[in-house]
């Protein structure tokens, strides 16, 4: 679905006369290969280059070196631009700054309108996508009256209405409260399970990545670790080095193991933890 080859991106800072002041390498030699239908999570602390990387996936940024392919199309080829943006939708961090319409249904219709979809089909798509995220009863509301989680679900519906093959979530939960976070992650998982849409979730909340098929951890523009959530979270010390926390239950299991309890590595959920304790106790 999405493939990058030695992707490098540099931000060039210029002074007032336009002379180059300094170059920051935000993404440095990234090779990724994401298969259709996967749920991918990209982790990293602030400034690790994860958002910059995400903006390459729907041609909002172009590589300084290397190449990005979306569904076989090179993002640097202008002829592919609108196809790429239709196939790889994007949900951003701030819910207020990505809603264009003054009424929920009008906002969801914005993408299809831009694509030139006939009026009747726009209405069908709007209804269907609002239904998918469970926001159909708010279709006539003003976005200003919705909660953060609801606004973010409207944004997701706006992307689904374009019928993408892949949705990139760029820290969609960073500005939400815990309930809103749950709403959004649930919606993302449902899209992956039911609609088989490839999901790329960029986040710094550990709890959100435990359901991913594959996790990439970024630091200083490099991919430092990759693997299943279990593989990643069994390396608690390495994650701490990268300034990332692990889910509380994983941390507890890790500390218990250090103190001598024969508990297995990479425990992700409370249920798993309870089961493991029972096993040790022989219940």
């Amino acid at each position: 679905m999405i493939r990058t080859e030695n992707l490098v991106f540099e931000y060039i800072r210029r002074d007032e006369e336009g002379n180059v002041e300094g170059i920051t390498r935000a993404v440095d030699g990234v090779n990724l290969d994401i298969k259709p239908g996967q749920f991918i999570a990209i982790l990293g602390h602030n400034g690790s280059g994860k958002s910059t990387l995400a903006k390459h996936f729907n041609a909002l940024l172009y590589p300084t070196e290397g190449e990005v392919f979306v569904d076989g199309m090179n993002t640097e080829d202008d002829d592919n631009l609108w196809n790429i943006r239709q196939e790889a939708g994007m949900v951003f961090q701030n819910p207020d700054n990505q809603i264009i319409g003054q009424v929920v249904e009008e906002d969801v219709g914005f993408g299809p309108e831009n694509m030139g979809v006939p009026t009747k089909e726009i209405w069908e798509r709007v209804e269907e996508s609002l239904n998918t995220v469970g926001m159909l009863q708010f279709r006539k509301s003003s976005p200003n009256h919705l909660s953060g989680g609801q606004k973010q679900r409207v944004s997701i519906a706006g992307v689904i209405a374009m019928h993408p093959k892949c949705i990139i979530f760029d820290e969609p939960t960073a500005m939400l409260d815990p309930n809103g976070r749950k709403e959004v992650i649930r919606a993302a998982r449902a899209l992956n399970d039911v609609e088989k849409i490839t999901i790329i979730l960029i986040t710094h909340y550990m709890e959100e990545v435990i359901y991913a098929d594959k996790v990439f951890v970024m630091d200083k523009g490099h991919i430092e670790m990759s693997g299943t959530p279990r593989e990643i979270f069994s390396q608690v010390d390495k994650l701490k080095e990268l300034r990332l926390g692990v889910p509380q239950v994983t941390l507890l299991a890790h500390e218990l193991k250090k103190s001598g309890l024969p508990i297995k590595d990479g425990i992700l959920t409370k249920e798993e933890f309870v089961q493991e304790l029972k096993r040790i106790k022989g219940i």
Partner: peptide, 25 residues
């Protein structure tokens, strides 16, 4: 905000009025 919004609009295939259909014509 303007910067964010412009990016979000581009990501949703906005390219001006040409070739655009209307949801509520």
């Amino acid at each position: 905000r303007a910067n964010d919004l412009a990016m979000a609009m581009e990501a949703r295939c906005y390219r001006g009025g040409d070739g655009r259909t209307k949801m509520k014509p």
